[in-house]
Each structure stands twice: as C-alpha cells, then as structure tokens.
Amino acid sequence: MFGYIRPAAPRLSGAENERFRSAYCGLCHTLGRRYGFFARFLLNFDFTFLAILLSLGESGTRACRRCAAHPCKGCGAMAASPALDAAADRSVVLAWWQLRDHIADHGFLAGLKYRLAALFVRRAYRKARAMVPEFDAAVQRHLRELGAREAEHCASLDAAAEPFAALLAEIATVEPDATKRRVLGQLFYHLGRWIYLIDAADDFKQDAKSGNYNPLRYRYGVDGNELSEDVKRALGETLDASIRQMAGAYALLDAGEWSPVLDSIFYDSLYGIGKAVLEGSYRKGARFRRYRDTSEEPI
C-alpha cells in the first residue's frame, strides 16, 4: 500500500533532488541504527515523505555517510533527529502490518515471500512495538475496522477509506505543538485517503480476477475488470479534492528549506501519480522502485 509518493523530479534542481535523497538516506540510516540491517529494506518513498513532514522546523544538518548501496562515494544523509527516529519507529510498525496483510491476502505459495520477509522483520517489529505501543495498538484497531468495512462490502469510498486515513492521521500525534498537530492530522488524513483510493484503482484488475473486495466496484457498480472513462473521471475528481485538502493544510505549515520539494509533491506530482495509476502506466515505472528499496508490491 505504500510507495506511491515521490517529488516531481524534473521540477527540482539537482540540489533539491539531493535534499530529498538526504531524507531518504537519513531515514535508512536511522532504520539501520535502531532496528538492524534488515529493517533498512522496509524503506520507501512514502515513509521518507512522512519523515520530511515530521522534521519540518528542525535544523536539518547533513553528514556524509557511507552504506552498502553507496560504499565508496557515500552520500549526504540527514543527521539523526527525534523526528527521524519517530518516523522510523512508525515505518517499522506500518511495514509489519502491511506484510501481515499480504500474508492474509495471499495463498500459501504466493504468500511465501511475505512470510519469509516477515521472519526477517519480526525482531524489528517487536522492538518498535515496545517503543510505540499506543501507535501499534491504534494501527491494529484501524486495520480491524478496515477489515470490517471490506467484509460488509462497503459502497462508500469515504467510509471504506476512513480507517486507513485515520490510521495515517494517528502519526500526527508525534508533533508536540498543538496547532501543527492539527494541521498535520488533517494532512495525513487526506494523504491516507488518497493512498487508499489510488491503491484501490491500482489493484482493480487484480481484485476483479481474484474476487477480493475493491471499493470502486461497489461505489460505481463496475461489472468487468476495467474502469470506464466516466468512473476514472469521477475518481479523479475526488482524488483532486483530497490533494486540495492536503495542499490547504500544507500551506499552513512553515516548510522552510523543504518548500521546493514539498511544493513539487502537493502541487504537481500527486496529480501525475494519480493519472499514471488511472491510466495503468504506473506499474512499469514502479518496477525499479521495488528493486531499489526492495519494498513489497503494493497491497
């Protein structure tokens, strides 16, 4: 379910792309430091994006770090910070439950790779659960609700997306400042809603074949395994509404040095990613991502 968000790279200068990379590397190093080598493989762009939003307002120092992927040259990685730690803890919990979800969704053979991955991640998850027990409990509660909506074949996109959106909004509780917490809560809620709906569109064909629940089928009454142009247009409009809500919340944050990167996400690339997913041209590009950060196929 995670791994969709990235900045619109052509909009950004080399230095800005470098800056985004520094958050990616910073989170990777933090995962490694706190949870061991295997946890680094849980890294993806969405978690990086969360880490950036949580670290707004912190003085971002960068240090040249080496790692297995960049052994010689090294690269500028964001220095350790409470926000990165918080993002790493939550990333591990989210990634674990995503893995569990994959295992539940797939049969024995198809789910084997996820079981194997879960073996490697289990220790990291246990540690993270001990660090952020309330977050872990909240995630489980929201996922149970999600399961219930799926079981009742919920026909409302919003009701179906609510548990996942609320789950992401939970991450905002990290923020100590009350106003900022409110703004981030709203931003993460719509980020969750957007991710859930994008994922539903992305998986539509697969769900149609396997008979799994997909909210778009019930909301728009689609029979086949293709979304019609009308359905895509309607879905596009409601995705736009969530992006506008995110942008409205983002405007109330002081993004500082992250402005160019975040501008390119909220004002551009979310639309582009949505279009690519709705057109079915997204997966091709995603193949590299899976290789690169070895995150699993989206749910």
């Binding site: 619109a8 052509p10 792309n17 985004f20 990616y24 690339s269 582009g272 041209s281 590299f288």
Partner: peptide, 16 residues
C-alpha cells in the same frame, strides 16, 4: 514535463 517525468521513472528514477 509529464513526458520528462515518466521518462525519468521508466529509466529507473535515476534523477534521485
């Protein structure tokens, strides 16, 4: 821009 963007994605996100 879109073309450049998808091109960049297909070529393996090398911009990052």
């Amino acid at each position: 821009l879109c073309a450049a963007w998808s091109c960049c994605m297909l070529s393996g996100g090398r911009c990052f």
